[in-house]
Each structure stands twice: as structure tokens, then as C-alpha cells.
Amino acid sequence: MTTDSRSSAAFLVDESLGYLFPAALRAAAAVGVADHLTDGPRSPAELAEVTATDARNLSRVLRLLATRGIVAEDAEGRFRLTATGDALRTDAPHSARSAILMNTDRSLWLPAAEMDRCLTEGTSVFEGIFGMPFFAHFAQDEATAAVFHTGMAAMSDPENEPIAAAYDFPATGTVVDVGGGHGGLLLEVLRHNPGLRGVLYDQPHVLAGHRLDVEETEGRWSVAEGDFFSAAPPGDIHLLKRILHDWEDDRCVTILERCREAMAPGGRILVVDAVVPRDNAPHQAKTLDLLLMSALVGRERTEADFAELLAAAGLRITRIVPTPTVLSVVEAVAASA
């Protein structure tokens, strides 16, 4: 075996163990260990007592997290939370704890473990594991649905303000957030644009957790219940944030057609999604794409993919606006406009 071959083998073996880091991150998030590190370093024994865990095993988990800078171990064997790991706290301004628990939930973890079946069968393996499609499973399992919706809000919250600030919304009109969840993005859009009104459109059980009822948006919002495959509320701008990547092309075309039908004259559709770059550099969309492949039926898309998808729905791209996040705003109008 050549030196290059040995190096390759060592690298690949090390990479194959990489799944144990998110497993450790999930374990730490699940027991809430970061919440007990806000006042400074603590020993594994002290942490084990307040988290009702085994001190030795907790120490082993924290030791691995320390290799990625989530925590740091001092000479006395105590652990402290670092600036990098701060968002692991439940009460952090942009806590990632719920997002971590969602991304490592068994509903996503188990399909990823059987990703080879996606290659041989050409489809998601979720239904084969859980006995029903992804969203049907969430609809009948309240506990898992709560993990998903809370996790999505936690994943989205840090993105919403930069996205709202990056796009030049009109001074007046109605913005419809289609499948907008708890309304985090719509809330930031209304905050940045006091002349706009907003409609949060989603299913009843999702809307129950909305966060639009704050003083600065008083009188400028409403909620609407429905199914975005069937209809969309009328408006000047229709937002679709992290929606289309969940679905196959034909279903995306249906969603887009319903939005186009509901657009006011001169209206716009804003697809807020990752636009996969055509290079070899790391990008979150390239990773998330495999989650979508294994657990759902959707995919992340390139600019060419979006152009084709929108054209099939009678729309055309007018521009793509980058944001400080991993997402871009793909702006589209009616093809005849």
C-alpha cells in the first residue's frame, strides 16, 4: 500500500466516524447540559447531578464536543461553554437547541442511515421505515410534529431578519407567507416595512403557534387556514420560504400555480430557498439535500432548476437576491408580465 493510499484510507475511516459528533451534540442538547454552564465551568460530577445523567459518560460526550470548540475542558477537568457553543443554551437569543433536536430526530436519522436504498430504489426510504409519507407521519404524531415545527422555527429565526432586510419590499401592499409556520419571516418583513400588511397561511395546528401578535405589527396581520396545493390567499407578494425544497417538481408547480392565480396584477412570488452553487465548495444546501432525499421527496435546486420549475408554472425569474444567510430570494413574476 502506498503512502497516498494509506493517507486516503485513514482519512476515509475517520470521516466514516463523523456521525458520532451530531449524536453527541444531540445527547448534550437532549439533557440540557449547556443550560447549566452559563455561570462558568463545572465538573462532570456537578453537571451529572443537575442533569440526572451518568458523570463518566457525560464527560465522554463533552470531551468529543470540546474537539469542535462547543465546550472547552480546563486543567482541572471542568467544562465551560464557549462562544461557539453558546446557542446550545435553551435561553440563548438564537437558541439552536430545538433545531439540533429536530435535525437529529429519529424521523430524519433513521432514513439517513439507509441512504443506500435511495440510490438503488430511486426514492425516499421514509415510508418504508415509518409506514407512511413524511408529512402524514407528522400529522398523526403530535410529539414528532411539535419537534419539527419548533425545530424549524429555531432553524429559521436567525435567518429571518437578514432575509427581510436584504430584499427591497414595496412600501405598501399585502404579503402572503405561504406555509409560513409560526410567522417568523413575516414578522420581520412587517417590522422592516411598516406600510405592508401580512397574511400568514398554513394549517390550523401550525397557526396555533404563530408569533405575529406583537405591538409593532398591531392591525397589520391576519391568519388564513388552508392547503397550499389547493389555493392561496390573494396578495401582492407571495413568500415561499423553505417550502419548495420539500416537494417533487410536479407538486412544486402546483403550489406555484396556486400562488400565481392569487397574485394581484404586477405581483411577485419570492421563493426563499438555497440556490445550490455549481462548484465543489462546501455549502449547507449540499448537505441538506441528502436529508431531503432520504426522508422527504424534495431536493435543493440550482438556478437552472428554479428557472425550469417556475417556467412550468407560468412564471419567470426576474432576479436572484443573495442574503447574508445560506438562502437566496428568487424573485419571479408572471411569464406574460
Rank of each mutant, 00 (worst) to 15 (best):
A281P: 04
R191A: 12
L256G: 00
A334H: 03
A28C: 05
R251G: 07
L186K: 01
L292Y: 15
Y201M: 06
L58T: 04
R211Q: 14
M1N: 12
P265D: 12
F135P: 00
V50Q: 10
V223Q: 13
M155C: 03
A27F: 13
D91C: 04
H182G: 06
V321W: 11
V297I: 11
S294I: 02
D4E: 13
I163M: 12
G173C: 03
F306R: 01
R89W: 04
D246K: 02
S124G: 09
T172Q: 13
A145G: 11
M1I: 03
V253N: 01
T302A: 08
A304H: 12
A10R: 11
C118E: 04
V125N: 07
G226Y: 01
C252H: 05
D213I: 00
S7P: 00
G226Q: 06
S8H: 14
D289R: 02
V321S: 12
A24H: 12
A171E: 15
L212K: 07
A75P: 05
L290F: 11
G209V: 00
T150H: 15
A52N: 14
T302I: 05
P41C: 06
A165V: 00
E49G: 02
A66S: 15
R97M: 03
L101V: 01
A87P: 07
E248R: 14
H245A: 03
R78T: 08
T217G: 10
T325R: 11
L270N: 03
A139I: 00
A171M: 09
F21H: 14
M152C: 08
S5H: 13
A166Q: 09
S124I: 02
D202K: 01
P162L: 03
A139S: 14
H245I: 05
V206P: 05
A34M: 11
P277M: 05
P204F: 11
R278H: 10
R60A: 15
I237L: 15
A232C: 06
G179T: 04
P93F: 12
H205T: 09
D202W: 05
A52K: 10
A312E: 12
T82P: 02
G128T: 03
R268N: 01
P204K: 05
A312S: 13
A87S: 15
V176K: 00
A304P: 04
